[in-house]
Amino acid sequence: MTLLAPHLTAFLRERLPHERHASPHTCDAYAYAFQLLLTFASKRLRTQPSSLTLEQLDVPLVLAFLDELETSRGNTARTRNARLAAIKSFARFIEFRVPSCVQQSHGLLAIPSKKTDEKLVGFLTRDEMQAVLDAPDPRARDGVRDRAMLHLAFAAGLRVSELVGLKLDDVTLQPQAAIHVRGKGRRERVLPLWKTTTKALRAWLVLRGSATCPELFLNARGGPLTRDGFEHILAKHVKTATATTPSLKKKRVSPHVLRHSCAMHTLEATRDIRKVALWLGHATAQTTEIYVRADPTAKLEAIDAVLPPALRRGRFRAPDKLLASLRPSRKGA
């Protein structure tokens, strides 16, 4: 029997961050997935998590764990698939590290992911987006910082991890204002900025001063801003913007909704899905197709381009009132 702990530790602390160069967010997500799995396995097998073996991490146990996620914890199929992805990544790692567990690893890799609903993306209209951007108070230091963050998140279509991970050296203001973004999958891109976004950034840089922290946006203590910190800031300003734009009450505005809004507005302006994919840093244009499905103007162009079928002429004739009254009711039929 092979203890699970040493191999799992090597996977989370060496394989993911150093060999695979996974982002800190991915490492934390995988670690949390195994925290849930080991807690479930410990209760099911009645043993301490540190005493679990690789052989006990078999297909029936993992299938029971995945079912537990959906039934007891109420997780969606998408979340279930994310936890399974972490387990499969570990199975590939074990396949070569422990040859005696090859068959077991192949069994885990064969577990299928569940199909998920492809829902339309949520995004903000121009008026809603403008209300959120105008919510921070430019007379306060935090308001200047928040306004620069919101403008930059929307204008560049940044993921929240890309926004809080921006360094001071990633910003160029001369001769053309631009930012250097290190995105998902180690894909880098350079994006030019609007004059309004540049103006908001300049105002924040003046107040930021020469802080020793390399990150562009700092919290109240002078340290780097976190994902949770930005989510809290966004929720606060959305609540403020709701007073002037009541339609925001019906929408769940997350940091990723700002990215979706940027994509939808860019698609509306350019009518080119390739430019949207380039702006957002997508690996392929297929990922960007979700915005085409949510854009009604693309369907209107199809209606205008296709000749509709002819409608046969006819005239409706009402049935005779007496005969209609003699028809049996549906309840008595």
Results as ranks from 00 to 15, higher is better:
residue 1 M to Q: 12
residue 3 L to A: 10
residue 10 A to M: 02
residue 11 F to T: 00
residue 14 E to D: 06
residue 24 P to A: 13
residue 27 C to F: 08
residue 27 C to P: 07
residue 31 A to Q: 12
residue 39 T to K: 13
residue 41 A to L: 05
residue 45 L to R: 10
residue 46 R to E: 09
residue 48 Q to E: 06
residue 51 S to E: 06
residue 53 T to R: 15
residue 54 L to R: 03
residue 54 L to H: 03
residue 58 D to G: 08
residue 62 V to N: 03
residue 62 V to A: 07
residue 65 F to Q: 01
residue 66 L to C: 11
residue 66 L to D: 07
residue 67 D to I: 01
residue 67 D to C: 14
residue 69 L to H: 15
residue 70 E to N: 02
residue 70 E to S: 08
residue 71 T to D: 12
residue 73 R to Q: 07
residue 81 N to T: 09
residue 85 A to Q: 15
residue 88 K to T: 11
residue 90 F to M: 12
residue 102 V to K: 11
residue 102 V to A: 06
residue 108 L to R: 03
residue 108 L to G: 06
residue 112 P to V: 14
residue 113 S to R: 14
residue 114 K to Q: 15
residue 115 K to E: 13
residue 116 T to F: 09
residue 121 V to C: 10
residue 123 F to D: 09
residue 125 T to L: 14
residue 127 D to Q: 08
residue 130 Q to F: 09
residue 130 Q to T: 15
residue 131 A to H: 02
residue 134 D to I: 06
residue 135 A to K: 11
residue 136 P to F: 11
residue 139 R to M: 07
residue 140 A to Y: 11
residue 142 D to A: 08
residue 142 D to P: 05
residue 142 D to N: 14
residue 147 R to Y: 12
residue 148 A to L: 03
residue 150 L to S: 04
residue 151 H to A: 15
residue 155 A to S: 05
residue 156 A to E: 08
residue 158 L to Q: 01
residue 159 R to L: 05
residue 159 R to M: 07
residue 165 G to S: 02
residue 165 G to C: 02
residue 166 L to E: 00
residue 168 L to V: 11
residue 182 R to N: 12
residue 183 G to N: 10
residue 184 K to H: 12
residue 185 G to C: 10
residue 188 E to K: 06
residue 190 V to W: 11
residue 191 L to C: 14
residue 197 T to C: 08
residue 199 K to Q: 09
residue 202 R to I: 07
residue 209 G to N: 11
residue 209 G to T: 12
residue 210 S to R: 03
residue 215 E to D: 07
residue 215 E to M: 11
residue 217 F to G: 00
residue 219 N to T: 10
residue 225 L to D: 00
residue 226 T to A: 09
residue 226 T to N: 05
residue 236 K to G: 02
residue 236 K to A: 06
residue 240 T to Y: 14
residue 249 K to Q: 14
residue 249 K to D: 04
residue 249 K to Y: 14
residue 256 H to L: 12
residue 258 L to F: 02
residue 259 R to V: 15
residue 260 H to E: 03
residue 261 S to V: 00
residue 268 E to C: 08
residue 270 T to L: 10
residue 272 D to K: 08
residue 277 A to T: 13
residue 277 A to I: 13
residue 279 W to Q: 10
residue 280 L to I: 09
residue 286 Q to Y: 13
residue 288 T to N: 14
residue 291 Y to I: 03
residue 295 D to W: 04
residue 295 D to A: 08
residue 296 P to V: 00
residue 296 P to Q: 15
residue 296 P to N: 15
residue 303 I to Q: 15
residue 308 P to S: 10
residue 309 P to D: 10
residue 314 G to Q: 04
residue 315 R to C: 13
residue 318 A to I: 15
residue 319 P to F: 15
residue 320 D to Q: 14
residue 323 L to Q: 09
residue 323 L to T: 11
residue 325 S to F: 04
residue 326 L to S: 01
residue 327 R to K: 03
residue 330 R to S: 05
residue 332 G to R: 11
